[in-house]
Amino acid sequence: MSEAKWYVVHTYSGYENKVKANIDKTIENRHLEDQILEVRVPMQEVIELKNGAEKAVQKKMFPGYVMIHMIMNDDTWYVVRNTRGVTGFVGPGSKPVPLTEEEMLPLGIQSESIVVDFEEGDTITVVAGAWEGTVGAVQTVNPAKQSLTINVELFGRETPVELSFTEVKKM
């Protein structure tokens, strides 16, 4: 099996977030988490001046494009290509071309991974984000997505929550 690379998908203008949501849903439904690792709409913070006041807003770096970190094969190509709002992969003809490391650098997407010592069953505490201060047992570890899942009690029942490696620490 080949390794995962970043590909660029062209979408209808203004459909970037819908395409991301649709692909994320398809990944979940078809259990392609190990083949399509991440779908991203690159954003940058821009200072806008409105009515004399400066305001920081998030703008799309590449309107009309979505970036996908995936292993290219017939299944993943079909899923992405046939997602509503996708007009095609960026590349000559019908052959998608992955981005090079040099092209990835200015986008701020690091390919190096964080090495962690978490295992299923370990007790961790959340140190950042919405669940800060929560303690839980690790249910699953996903090194490809740099995340893990813990169960959190929500409305009287156990609910799985996915957290980034950077948001947790081992107890």
Rank of each mutant, 00 (worst) to 15 (best):
Q110I: 06
P106M: 10
E16V: 08
W77H: 15
I109N: 05
E54Q: 15
M104F: 10
L154T: 09
T76R: 10
V90W: 00
A4P: 06
T87F: 02
M67I: 13
P92I: 09
Q146T: 06
F89D: 00
V41I: 14
P98E: 12
S113V: 10
I124F: 02
L148N: 01
E167T: 08
P143G: 05
W6T: 07
P63G: 05
R30G: 03
P98Q: 11
V19R: 07
A53G: 02
D34A: 12
D74T: 13
V138H: 04
N73T: 09
T87A: 01
S94H: 02
Y15M: 07
D75W: 00
K25S: 15
V39L: 03
A53N: 13
I71A: 14
G52N: 10
T134W: 02
T83K: 01
G133P: 00
G108Y: 13
I47D: 14
S94W: 03
I114P: 04
I71E: 15
T26F: 12
Y15H: 10
P42E: 13
A130W: 00
N73H: 15
G52A: 12
M70H: 08
W77C: 03
N29C: 03
T140K: 12
V8K: 11
A137Q: 13
P63E: 00
G91I: 07
L37T: 01
V138Y: 07
M70P: 01
P96L: 10
D34G: 04
E132R: 13
F155G: 01
Y7M: 03
Q146S: 14
K5N: 15
D122G: 08
A56I: 14
A144L: 12
Q139Y: 09
Y78F: 06
E158C: 05
G129T: 09
T140F: 02
G136S: 05
P96G: 10
A144T: 05
L32V: 07
I114N: 08
M61E: 08
P63L: 00
V168H: 06
P160V: 00
K60N: 12
L99T: 01
K55L: 13
N151V: 06
Q58V: 02
Q44H: 09
S13C: 01
P63R: 02
T125H: 07
Q146R: 15
T149G: 02
L154C: 05
A4T: 08
V86A: 09
L148K: 03
A53R: 15
V161T: 08
E167F: 02
E28F: 06
V141W: 03
M104V: 09
G52Y: 08
T123L: 10
E48I: 14
N73A: 10
V41W: 06
P143Y: 13
Y15T: 01
Y12W: 14
D34H: 11
V135Y: 05
I150G: 04
A53L: 13
T26G: 09
K169A: 10
E120S: 14
M1Q: 11
I68T: 14
K20D: 03
A130G: 01
M70Y: 04
W6G: 04
N51G: 05
E119H: 15
L32R: 00
A56S: 13
P106V: 06
S113C: 06
T166S: 11
E3P: 04
L105W: 07
S2C: 05
L148A: 05
K145E: 12
T149Y: 06
T140M: 03
V90G: 02
L154N: 03
R157G: 04
V138Q: 06
S111R: 14
V8T: 15
E45M: 11
N82W: 11
E16T: 07
V9T: 10
M1E: 11
M61S: 12
